[in-house]
């Protein structure tokens, strides 16, 4: 059986909101490593990988590895019924085809349980090799989201280039072109406001803005985002979930034919 009690229930709500538009169905895996998910979008361009480590849960009990197939839209519907400050507990009995979400208000004066049907999902796990990236950019997540949103009103693709000058986001469309350059900036009041650029060699990659905008839905999960880039390889866009884990998106680039 499985029982996971998450005091910061709002976090699970944010996780679902950040992935439900990209992926329809996914297996949530529960093991000693943590509560995890890996799922690909239907166009096979983006993969989302989530890890919530056991330490982040007040109670983390699963007596064997368990995989639970869920429709993410339905799961999001259920989690929307939880308050942002509620404690959320996931429960599943061995062999059951349902999962129960229990929501407790912080003052324990309201307790609700929602039972959701599980589904069988055949999903292949991808192996992501450790890579030495040409450039790694850490910047405020809200700034990255703003840039992606702004550029998508001009064009459909974004070219992300890292040079000694900084990181450049460029697009072009019928009405014109747009360039946004962010320079390294560590002279900030709070560490999360910094832009840090580690460059081993210059890199330039093109991505569909539709996908970039979709993955910026994870912005509420973290103040910062890390972009790991290598020429001709998928980008890794990571939002760290404080002291608990991460949500990572692997996004295939567009390549000149």
């Amino acid at each position: 059986m499985l029982e996971l009690r998450l005091v910061q229930g709002g976090l699970l709500k944010k996780v679902l909101e950040s992935i439900k538009d990209l992926v329809n169905d996914a297996n949530f895996d529960c093991s000693a490593t943590g509560f995890s998910l890996q799922a690909m979008d239907s166009s096979q361009v983006a993969v989302v990988a989530l890890l919530l480590r056991p330490e982040g849960f007040e109670r983390y009990w699963c007596d064997r590895n368990i995989s639970m197939g869920m429709n993410l839209n339905n799961m999001a519907k259920m989690l929307k019924c939880a308050g942002n400050d509620d404690i959320i507990t996931l429960k599943a009995e061995d062999g059951s085809d349902t999962v129960t979400f229990m929501f407790e208000s912080p003052t324990q004066d309201k307790i609700a349980d929602f039972e959701m049907k599980l589904m069988d999902i055949n999903s292949e796990r991808l192996g992501f090799p450790e890579a030495d990236y040409h450039a790694i950019v850490r910047m405020p997540s809200s700034e990255f989201a703003r840039i992606c949103k702004d550029l998508s009103s001009i064009g459909n693709t974004v070219v992300i280039s890292v040079t000694k000058e900084g990181v450049r986001f460029s697009t072009r469309g019928d009405i014109g072109t747009a360039n946004v350059v962010c320079r390294q900036n560590t002279a900030v009041d709070k560490p999360e406001e910094a832009t840090i650029i580690e460059m081993n060699e210059p890199v330039s990659l093109t991505f569909g803005l539709r996908y970039m905008n979709s993955l910026t839905k994870a912005t509420p999960l973290s103040n910062t985002v890390t972009l790991s880039l290598s020429s001709g390889l998928p980008a890794v866009v990571e939002y760290r979930i404080a002291e608990m884990g991460y949500i990572r998106f692997y996004l295939a680039p567009k390549i000149e034919e």
Binding site: Q44, Y250, K254
Partner: peptide
Amino acid sequence: LAQQVQLLIFYGGV
């Protein structure tokens, strides 16, 4: 024009 490629080109299943 740049063409969108799929992730499976880069990562095999495990």
